[in-house]
């Protein structure tokens, strides 16, 4: 099998792993308003933790580039919001604010996957063993990302299988980006800090703008604060030890 095809297939494996994030929702029976609030709190904690990890990683490649990327990420979400507000957006059967939130999560997580795909591709330049370790690491990292997506989609009435499907879709840029990144390692590794910063800025902004307020809406603030802080810490541990 040619190496380029292998890179693509490994990228596909990491994308499929994202779908596993929907699994916990197969066991949740009823969705009460409080459960919805907690799901949003979980998504907030996971995304904040992921962004902290991304920012720390990005600054190792270059502080300024990461910060520039982050500012662009925030502006990107602001503009996307403005565009989505003007239109009557629909996501499946959902309309209005819920649909806008779902669409935003999908957009942010999909764009975020581009830099992960680049990371997969670039890692193949450093030998097979290292590449496999990184592929495995990114595949495992994708599971909580799928969880975050499902935590936003599921309360709006999207079925578990569809949640898994959308999670995988959000990661499809990974196999697509892995191949060009592998072929043009030099160029892509220089772009990596911008991409990482962009993903972090976009995620943090989306948490404060869309997801966290939803969490406070239907649940008292201390239970929300416990969930957000503990999932954030769990995400940090997860990123570091897996």
């Amino acid at each position: 099998m040619p190496l380029t095809l292998q890179v693509f297939l490994y990228g596909l494996v990491t994308a499929l792993a994202t779908g596993l994030g929907a699994v916990p929702f197969a066991f949740a029976r009823s969705i009460s308003p409080k459960a919805v609030a907690q799901a949003h709190a979980i998504a907030s904690g996971l995304m904040l933790g992921a962004s902290f990890g991304l920012l720390a990683e990005g600054t190792q490649y270059g502080s300024w580039q990461t910060m520039v990327g982050a500012v662009v990420g925030v502006v990107f979400i602001l503009l996307t919001e403005v565009v989505l507000r003007r239109q009557d957006v629909g996501f499946g059967r959902v309309r209005g604010a819920g649909a806008r939130r779902m669409l935003l999560v999908m957009i942010v997580m999909t764009v975020h996957s581009f830099s992960e795909g680049v990371a997969v591709g670039v890692s193949f330049g450093g030998g097979m063993t290292l590449a496999l370790v990184i592929v495995l690491a990114i595949a495992i990292h994708n599971i909580p990302e799928g969880l975050a997506i499902s935590a936003v989609l599921r309360p709006e009435g999207v079925g578990v299988w569809r949640c898994a499907g959308w999670s995988v879709v959000s990661s499809l840029p990974q196999p697509l980006m892995a191949v060009p990144a592998f072929l043009l390692v030099e160029t892509f590794s220089r772009m990596l800090p911008y991409g990482i910063g962009f993903a972090a800025g976009a995620m943090v902004f989306m948490v404060f703008e869309e997801i966290l307020p939803e969490a406070y809406h239907d649940e008292r603030r201390h239970p929300v604060a416990v969930t957000v802080t503990v999932t954030l810490l769990a995400m940090l541990v997860f990123q570091q030890y897996l």
Partner: peptide
């Protein structure tokens, strides 16, 4: 600090 933000400042 993170807990204080989530429980006191942001809600």
């Amino acid at each position: 600090l993170i807990y204080l933000v989530m429980a006191e400042l942001l809600p």
